[in-house]
Lab assay of single mutants.
Amino acid sequence: RKEMTAACTPRRRIINLTSVLSLQEEINEQGHEVLREMLHNHSFVGCVNPQWALAQHQTKLYLLNTTKLSEELFYQILIYDFANFGVLRLSEPAPLFDLAMLALDSPESGWTEEDGPKEGLAEYIVEFLKKKAEMLADYFSLEIDEEGNLIGLPLLIDNYVPPLEGLPIFILRLATEVNWDEEKECFESLSKECAMFYSIRKQYISEESTLSGQQSEVPGSIPNSWKWTVEHIVYKALRSHILPPKHFTEDGNILQLANLPDLYKVFERC
């Protein structure tokens, strides 16, 4: 597991931080080997919608929660590849102030007048994250320049770009939802926020969305749709870069829909 690298990086740093090793061990302890084997050997059937997909393993048909699986995938990559990410360069710098204002204007932020003026909160978020810029760049390849612009994001899987519609809320939550006081809790909560931002979430995906850094293989055609990215990038990574937690067998994120021999018997009677 320590050699797990989802995106190509030129050289690998050895990380011996106790906090990170502890988080890696927790993933191992909570892992479910049968689910790992199923995901490793599954045959992708198709997307139901951005949140759900169908896959077959041996004779069984499964309904998989793409949102939760991708979130767990990105969390584990962030923990196992800690401080070893490439950088996704933004085509132009994104001012943190503008991103924070967009987030505060969104109902998702939960902002009320009692929280104070949005401009003041946005300025605080910019200054707060600028103070964390060195650590964010060093460990997470999340790059913020001296003017308070976001200029780079971590490359977690080759050819995958997170849904940038979720970027404003991500920046807001970096400042408000991460435990910045304790090292282990900081790395864990920061990785979880980043994983949620990178995950496939239906509120940020339309039929026209593209999450891939590449064009489709047909010359002159439109960019790959999110469905292509889910199948050929995300579920491909799920084959080798995730140890599913045991609770996925109990919380409805992986559901067995049918045993195909039983279905064949039904059709034979028709």
Rank of each mutant, 00 (worst) to 15 (best):
P107V: 09
K227P: 09
L39D: 15
S106H: 08
N259M: 05
F44I: 12
S206A: 04
D105V: 07
H42W: 14
L61D: 00
A7P: 13
P219D: 08
H247W: 11
M196K: 06
S225D: 05
N28P: 11
A103P: 00
I14L: 07
E250F: 15
A237E: 10
H42S: 10
F140R: 01
H32V: 08
I242W: 14
S212Q: 10
E250K: 04
E182T: 06
E134F: 03
E143G: 05
D98T: 08
Q256H: 12
E188I: 12
R1N: 12
N259Q: 05
H232N: 05
L121I: 01
F85D: 03
V48C: 08
P163V: 08
D181F: 11
L255H: 07
E185R: 02
S91T: 10
E127C: 04
L167V: 03
E3A: 07
L211W: 06
K132R: 03
K60L: 11
K2H: 10
P219T: 05
E123S: 03
S141D: 14
Q51T: 07
A122T: 02
S91M: 10
S240G: 08
V230N: 06
E72Y: 10
A83W: 10
L190Y: 15
F187P: 02
S91V: 12
C8Y: 11
E108H: 07
H232M: 10
K131W: 15
I79M: 07
Y264F: 06
I157K: 03
T210H: 07
K265R: 09
P50G: 11
L153H: 00
G220A: 08
T249V: 08
E143C: 09
P162Y: 00
W226A: 06
N159C: 07
V20F: 15
R12G: 10
L17A: 08
G46H: 04
H42V: 12
F85R: 13
E147H: 06
E182H: 03
P261D: 05
R11V: 13
K236E: 13
G148A: 04
E188H: 09
T59A: 07
P261F: 14
F267R: 03
W111K: 02
L172P: 00
K68Q: 10
R36S: 15
L102R: 02
L255M: 06
S221Y: 09
Y204H: 06
L63K: 03
K132H: 08
V20H: 13
S216K: 05
P219C: 09
Y204S: 07
K265E: 08
H241C: 11
Y235A: 10
F187E: 02
R13M: 13
K184W: 13
E92K: 05
G213T: 10
I242T: 13
H241W: 12
V45L: 03
V34C: 11
T59M: 07
T66D: 00
S106N: 05
Y80C: 05
D251G: 04
V20D: 15
G116F: 15
E3Y: 14
R13K: 08
K118H: 15
G110M: 02
S199D: 00
H241S: 07
I205C: 04
C47P: 13
N159F: 12
L238G: 04
E146L: 05
A103G: 15
N159A: 06
E193D: 01
A7K: 08
N28D: 06
R13P: 12
I200P: 12
E25G: 04
L99N: 03
H57W: 11
E143R: 05
V218W: 12
A100S: 09
F140H: 04
E113K: 03
V48W: 14
G213H: 07
G152L: 00
G166Y: 13
P154K: 00
T59I: 14
N179W: 10
N41P: 15
N179V: 07
F82A: 02
V234W: 01
D158Q: 06
F44P: 01
L129S: 01
I169Y: 13
C194Q: 05
P117D: 07
H57V: 05
E26I: 07
D105N: 02
E177Y: 15
S19N: 06
E33F: 13
S141F: 13
L167M: 04
Y80H: 04
E231K: 13
A175Y: 05
L104M: 01
E231N: 14
Q256E: 09
K2T: 13
L69I: 04
P95A: 10
A237L: 14
R269Y: 15
V20Y: 15
F82W: 02
Y160G: 00
S225N: 05
C47V: 05
Q51M: 09
K132G: 03
E127K: 02
K192P: 00
E185S: 04
R269S: 08
F140I: 06
L64W: 11
T66W: 00
G148D: 10
K118E: 14
S225Q: 09
K236M: 14
Y235I: 14
S240R: 09
K184S: 05
V20I: 04
V218Y: 10
L61Q: 02
H241N: 09
P93R: 04
Q58N: 07
S225Y: 06
Q56G: 03
S225L: 11
F197W: 03
S191T: 04
L243Q: 12
L172C: 07
E26Q: 04
R201Q: 14
N28V: 08
E134P: 02
N149Y: 12
L155A: 06
T18R: 09
Y264R: 11
E231D: 11
A7T: 09
T112I: 13
N28S: 06
V34D: 07
R201Y: 12
A237T: 11
H247E: 05
S225W: 13
L90P: 07
Q58H: 12
Y62G: 00
L174P: 00
L238S: 11
I79T: 11
L39R: 11
W111D: 04
F140S: 02
S240D: 07
H57N: 13
S199C: 07
H40I: 09
I242C: 04
K2V: 12
T112C: 11
E72P: 00
L167P: 00
P107Y: 14
I125M: 07
L172R: 01
Y139I: 04
E182M: 10
K68S: 09
I200E: 03
P244S: 14
A53F: 07
H40Y: 13
T210D: 07
E127R: 02
S109F: 12
V126G: 05
A83G: 08
H40R: 09
T18K: 05
R89H: 08
M4F: 12
N179L: 06
H241P: 14
D138C: 06
I144T: 02
E147L: 08
Q215W: 12
I77C: 14
S109W: 13
E123T: 02
A94W: 10
N149M: 10
T112F: 15
F85G: 09
T176S: 05
G86I: 13
H241T: 12
D145S: 03
L164P: 03
D181R: 03
P163L: 05
G110Y: 03
G86S: 04
E26R: 03
H232T: 10
L136D: 00
I200L: 06
E182S: 05
S206K: 07
S106D: 11
D98C: 12
W228L: 10
R269I: 14
C47W: 08
Q203V: 07
Q58L: 12
C194N: 02
E182L: 11
Y75A: 12
A7H: 11
R89K: 04
L243K: 07
